[in-house]
């Protein structure tokens, strides 16, 4: 009874948030908020929903997802501006190339565990950062690529901030639904089984290595998709955007959001993306305050991460779980 009520409340909340997000551009014409800040929130949601699968469900860590994001952004940027491809093909190519890149990195790296996997993905991010700068002919070097048009497909042009906002949020909603289905469905169940008992999962015929590689590849494709949409939203791609620091911030969102949860990282992504753009949400915030918050951005993330690890090791997602579920889960850990 209470469980069904809770489910209904949750569905209601999701629908209400969806409606608010959808009508927002009709209520405000703020180009900064609609054209930039909230688009970044949606893009981070796309990346984080993939990263939450990698971290919280497959139990892997990646410090290289900003590089996949960059791979997607540069792929569509190059194809659309230099080779005059239509944006749809550019975005599709971006998703494929970053997804394949993810598989290529996962196959050798997932033999590694813990710190070593973190190091391998970190190294990948650094290599890609160098390539983004050095492959001048394709990436435009330090100047980056500019003049990337808004997304368009078959005559439908998403060439105003509001239209672009709806496009990106629409894609984010689809990606979230996909990630939710994976978590709730067979692969998610197999991954939770893997966390419950690796031997039990293996004995049940769960191919754990394959599952980890697939999840990693999918999350890289999500990151590439977000990168490609970023390129079309902002119109400009530069190498510093996809640095290791961005990767660390993305992982921070997932850690603060919590392992084994999708809702937790999603909420953490929203909140943490908004921190440096507080001026877009709170009217009348002085420029000094905003500058201060932006300067301290990394410190805020760091303090939040330490706080979560000490005070709520399960992350924000764990705090959302109803008390009954938590009791059951704790009984499981004790057994």
């Amino acid at each position: 009874m209470i469980a069904t009520l809770l489910t209904r409340v949750r569905y209601g909340a999701v629908i209400a948030i969806g409606v608010v997000v959808a009508v927002l551009p009709l209520l405000t014409g703020d180009r900064y908020l609609i054209g930039k800040v909230l688009v970044f929130v949606a893009l981070n949601l796309i990346i984080v929903s993939g990263l939450a699968l990698v971290f919280g469900f497959a139990g892997q860590i990646s410090l290289g997802h900003a590089a996949f994001c960059g791979l997607g952004a540069y792929t569509t940027g190059f194809l659309v501006t230099t080779l005059d491809w239509p944006p749809l093909l550019g975005v599709v190519a971006a998703v494929l190339i970053s997804g394949l890149g993810g598989l290529a990195l996962a196959l050798p790296s997932l033999r590694l565990k813990g710190h070593y996997l973190a190091m391998a993905t970190l190294g990948f991010n650094e290599i890609m950062s160098v390539l983004f700068v050095e492959m001048d002919a394709v990436t435009g070097g330090n100047n980056g690529l500019s003049g990337i048009p808004y997304f368009s497909v078959a005559g439908a042009r998403f060439d105003t901030p509001a239209l672009n906002y709806w496009l990106v949020w629409g894609v984010a909603a689809v990606v979230l639904a996909l990630a939710y289905n994976i978590v709730r469905g067979r692969p998610g169940r197999a991954m939770r089984a893997l966390h419950g008992s690796e031997i039990g999962a293996l004995a049940s015929g769960v191919d754990t290595t394959r599952l980890k590689v697939q999840v990693f590849g999918l999350s890289a494709a999500f990151a590439g998709l977000a990168g490609a949409l970023y390129a079309h939203s902002v119109g400009f791609v530069s190498p510093t955007t996809f640095s290791l620091e961005t990767s660390v911030i993305l992982v921070a969102m997932v850690v603060i959001g919590g392992s084994g949860s999708l809702a937790g990282p999603v909420m953490a992504a929203v909140v943490l993306t908004l921190v440096p753009y507080a001026d877009a949400l709170v009217p009348g915030l002085s420029a000094d305050t905003v500058a201060l918050m932006q300067d301290w951005e990394a410190d805020v993330y760091g303090i939040l991460m330490i706080g979560v690890i000490i005070l709520a090791p399960g992350g924000l997602g764990r705090l959302l779980v109803s008390r009954r579920d938590r009791r059951v889960a704790e009984a499981g850990e004790a057994a």
Binding site: R186, R189, A190, R192, A193, H195, G196, S197, I199, G200, A201, A203, S204, G205, V206, V328, A329, A331, G332, E333, A335
Partner: peptide, 18 residues
Amino acid sequence: MLFGPMTVAENLAVGAHT
């Protein structure tokens, strides 16, 4: 080697994973 936090039905479902 059961999957402790998962339900009995889910444990059986994982058994049919292949």
